[in-house]
Every structure is written in structure tokens, then in C-alpha cells.
Amino acid sequence: MTTISMQVNGKAVSGNVEGRTLLVGFLRDHLGLTGTHVGCDTSQCGACVVHVDGLAVKACTMFAAEAEGAEVTTIEGMAEPGAPLGPIQQAFQDHHGLQCGFCTPGMVMSAAALLREVPRPSEAQVRDYLEGNLCRCTGYHNIVRAILAAAETRGPQGEAQA
């Protein structure tokens, strides 16, 4: 067991983990942040996407120990509890970008990473960026629509709180 520390959604956290503990396991089992989902065992579905030092990564394909000292943002960090949803989350609701919702945390985190890189993406850029996020329900059209709409509402700089 080793002790690791990092910032998660702006808060300093630490915990005792095994070497094999994945970042997603640390978030869910140690910190109780169960918004980050696990949808596969093969690093393909993207339900587990979080940001580590500002970059989208699959939390199921990174050891918790590798996030030592990092700043991690999860879906729980996208809006304060009880506060209005962030613009991307709101757009998913407005445009029916989810059905069962299992893929949604990963979709929202990927979308936030995309909009930070490309504030006004084309539809093709949105679809391309979602390559690693699978959805078994929606058929993707409304997810793409939601992300394009969120890009509109976030203003030209797009740097606003995702």
C-alpha cells in the first residue's frame, strides 16, 4: 500500500492504495465519487473519462499512483451540488443527449475537453472527438447536437466554467 495525494475537483485528497488501484477505483471506492462510470474492461467505452491536469484520460486505464500530485476533475466537478447544471450538462438535458445516462459522465467530460481545445467545433470535429465514447442508447445525434449547442452558449472564448 502507498499513500497518494492529489487535488480532486479543487479539493486536496489523499488515500492508501494498492499498486494495482486504478484512478477510477480511487475516485469511486475511496472518495465515493461514483459519477465516473466503468463500462468496459478493454479501455474502449469512455464512460470513465475524467480530466487529469486538464487532459481527458480514461480513468480505468491509469493507475491511481500515476495521478499523484495531479489536478483531477470529474463529472462531480462540473457543477456545485444544488447549483444549476453547467452549460454542457444543461445542453445534454435540453437536447435529449441521454437516455439511460450511463455514458453521460464520460461524454460530458470529453465534450468539455474538446470545447477547451476547440471552442467552436464543427459537427465533424465533435464526432471525431467522441471516437472513444460509446453510447448504447441515443444513436449519438442528440449528443452531438447538445455539444454544438453548448459551444454556442459558452460564448466565443469558450473558457467559461464547463
Binding site: A56, V57, N133
Partner: peptide, 9 residues
Amino acid sequence: IGDPAVRNR
């Protein structure tokens, strides 16, 4: 290669 999250690691 792969997708954005794979490319970031």
C-alpha cells in the same frame, strides 16, 4: 491513433 483520451496517455 485510438481516441483523444488514448492519445493523451
